[in-house]
Amino acid sequence: PQEEYKKRAKKALKKGDEDTAREALKRAGLSPDQAEEFIRRFL
């Protein structure tokens, strides 16, 4: 589910792994723009 992928993305970002985070967010159904926004907000 979407929440699970978002959790995964946050874990990846904590490790500084933005590529894995983007992949997880893409799987969560976010557009690339939404994924970038999510990452920017998190960092």
Results as ranks from 00 to 15, higher is better:
residue 1 P to C: 14
residue 1 P to E: 14
residue 1 P to Y: 14
residue 1 P to D: 14
residue 1 P to A: 14
residue 1 P to M: 15
residue 1 P to F: 14
residue 1 P to G: 12
residue 1 P to V: 14
residue 1 P to Q: 14
residue 1 P to L: 15
residue 2 Q to F: 11
residue 2 Q to R: 11
residue 2 Q to D: 11
residue 2 Q to S: 12
residue 2 Q to L: 12
residue 2 Q to I: 13
residue 2 Q to W: 13
residue 3 E to F: 08
residue 3 E to G: 07
residue 3 E to T: 07
residue 3 E to N: 10
residue 3 E to D: 12
residue 3 E to I: 08
residue 4 E to T: 07
residue 4 E to R: 10
residue 4 E to I: 09
residue 4 E to M: 11
residue 4 E to G: 07
residue 4 E to P: 05
residue 4 E to Q: 09
residue 5 Y to A: 11
residue 5 Y to W: 15
residue 5 Y to N: 06
residue 5 Y to S: 05
residue 5 Y to D: 06
residue 5 Y to P: 03
residue 5 Y to E: 10
residue 5 Y to M: 09
residue 5 Y to C: 10
residue 6 K to N: 04
residue 6 K to Q: 09
residue 6 K to A: 07
residue 6 K to M: 15
residue 6 K to E: 11
residue 7 K to F: 06
residue 7 K to P: 02
residue 7 K to L: 09
residue 7 K to T: 10
residue 7 K to G: 06
residue 7 K to W: 08
residue 8 R to H: 10
residue 8 R to S: 10
residue 8 R to T: 11
residue 8 R to M: 15
residue 8 R to L: 15
residue 8 R to Q: 15
residue 9 A to L: 03
residue 9 A to I: 04
residue 9 A to F: 03
residue 9 A to P: 01
residue 9 A to W: 03
residue 9 A to H: 02
residue 9 A to V: 04
residue 10 K to W: 13
residue 10 K to N: 07
residue 10 K to M: 15
residue 10 K to F: 11
residue 10 K to L: 15
residue 10 K to C: 14
residue 11 K to M: 12
residue 11 K to I: 15
residue 11 K to Q: 15
residue 11 K to T: 13
residue 11 K to Y: 08
residue 11 K to W: 08
residue 11 K to C: 14
residue 11 K to G: 07
residue 11 K to S: 13
residue 12 A to P: 01
residue 12 A to Y: 07
residue 12 A to N: 03
residue 12 A to V: 03
residue 12 A to Q: 03
residue 12 A to M: 05
residue 12 A to C: 05
residue 12 A to G: 02
residue 12 A to T: 01
residue 13 L to E: 00
residue 13 L to H: 01
residue 13 L to D: 01
residue 13 L to K: 01
residue 13 L to S: 01
residue 13 L to T: 01
residue 13 L to C: 04
residue 13 L to Q: 01
residue 14 K to P: 01
residue 14 K to F: 11
residue 14 K to E: 15
residue 14 K to C: 14
residue 14 K to Y: 11
residue 15 K to I: 13
residue 15 K to P: 01
residue 15 K to R: 14
residue 15 K to T: 12
residue 16 G to E: 03
residue 16 G to T: 02
residue 16 G to Q: 05
residue 17 D to T: 02
residue 17 D to N: 06
residue 17 D to Q: 07
residue 18 E to R: 12
residue 18 E to M: 15
residue 18 E to V: 15
residue 18 E to Q: 13
residue 18 E to D: 07
residue 18 E to A: 12
residue 18 E to C: 14
residue 19 D to K: 14
residue 19 D to H: 12
residue 19 D to L: 12
residue 19 D to V: 13
residue 20 T to Q: 10
residue 20 T to I: 07
residue 20 T to Y: 09
residue 21 A to Y: 02
residue 21 A to F: 02
residue 21 A to T: 02
residue 21 A to H: 01
residue 21 A to C: 05
residue 21 A to W: 02
residue 21 A to N: 00
residue 22 R to E: 01
residue 22 R to S: 03
residue 22 R to M: 06
residue 22 R to C: 04
residue 23 E to F: 04
residue 23 E to N: 07
residue 23 E to M: 07
residue 23 E to D: 11
residue 23 E to T: 07
residue 24 A to N: 13
residue 24 A to K: 04
residue 24 A to W: 15
residue 24 A to F: 15
residue 24 A to Q: 13
residue 24 A to S: 08
residue 25 L to R: 00
residue 25 L to I: 02
residue 25 L to K: 00
residue 25 L to G: 00
residue 25 L to N: 00
residue 26 K to N: 08
residue 26 K to W: 07
residue 26 K to Q: 10
residue 26 K to T: 10
residue 26 K to F: 11
residue 27 R to C: 12
residue 27 R to I: 09
residue 27 R to V: 07
residue 27 R to P: 01
residue 27 R to G: 07
residue 27 R to W: 09
residue 28 A to V: 03
residue 28 A to L: 05
residue 28 A to D: 01
residue 29 G to V: 00
residue 29 G to F: 03
residue 29 G to N: 04
residue 29 G to I: 00
residue 29 G to E: 03
residue 29 G to L: 04
residue 29 G to Q: 03
residue 30 L to G: 00
residue 30 L to H: 02
residue 30 L to Q: 02
residue 30 L to K: 01
residue 30 L to C: 08
residue 30 L to W: 07
residue 31 S to P: 06
residue 31 S to Q: 06
residue 31 S to I: 03
residue 31 S to F: 04
residue 31 S to A: 07
residue 31 S to D: 10
residue 31 S to W: 04
residue 31 S to C: 08
residue 32 P to N: 10
residue 32 P to G: 08
residue 32 P to K: 10
residue 32 P to T: 10
residue 32 P to F: 10
residue 32 P to I: 11
residue 32 P to Y: 10
residue 32 P to H: 11
residue 32 P to D: 13
residue 33 D to M: 11
residue 33 D to F: 08
residue 33 D to I: 10
residue 34 Q to P: 01
residue 34 Q to F: 05
residue 34 Q to I: 05
residue 34 Q to K: 06
residue 34 Q to E: 14
residue 34 Q to W: 04
residue 34 Q to R: 05
residue 34 Q to D: 11
residue 35 A to D: 00
residue 35 A to W: 04
residue 35 A to T: 12
residue 35 A to Q: 09
residue 35 A to V: 14
residue 35 A to H: 02
residue 35 A to Y: 04
residue 35 A to F: 03
residue 35 A to K: 01
residue 35 A to C: 10
residue 36 E to I: 05
residue 36 E to V: 04
residue 36 E to T: 07
residue 36 E to F: 05
residue 36 E to D: 12
residue 37 E to K: 06
residue 37 E to H: 06
residue 37 E to T: 05
residue 37 E to D: 10
residue 37 E to G: 05
residue 38 F to V: 04
residue 38 F to K: 00
residue 38 F to R: 00
residue 38 F to P: 00
residue 38 F to T: 02
residue 38 F to A: 02
residue 39 I to D: 00
residue 39 I to C: 02
residue 39 I to F: 03
residue 39 I to V: 06
residue 39 I to E: 00
residue 39 I to G: 00
residue 40 R to K: 10
residue 40 R to H: 09
residue 40 R to Y: 09
residue 40 R to P: 00
residue 40 R to V: 07
residue 41 R to W: 11
residue 41 R to E: 11
residue 41 R to I: 10
residue 41 R to L: 09
residue 41 R to M: 11
residue 41 R to S: 10
residue 41 R to T: 09
residue 42 F to R: 03
residue 42 F to I: 08
residue 42 F to E: 07
residue 42 F to A: 08
residue 42 F to C: 09
residue 42 F to L: 06
residue 42 F to M: 06
residue 43 L to E: 06
residue 43 L to C: 11
residue 43 L to D: 05
residue 43 L to A: 09
residue 43 L to W: 12
residue 43 L to Q: 11
residue 43 L to I: 09
residue 43 L to K: 12
residue 43 L to M: 11
residue 43 L to G: 08
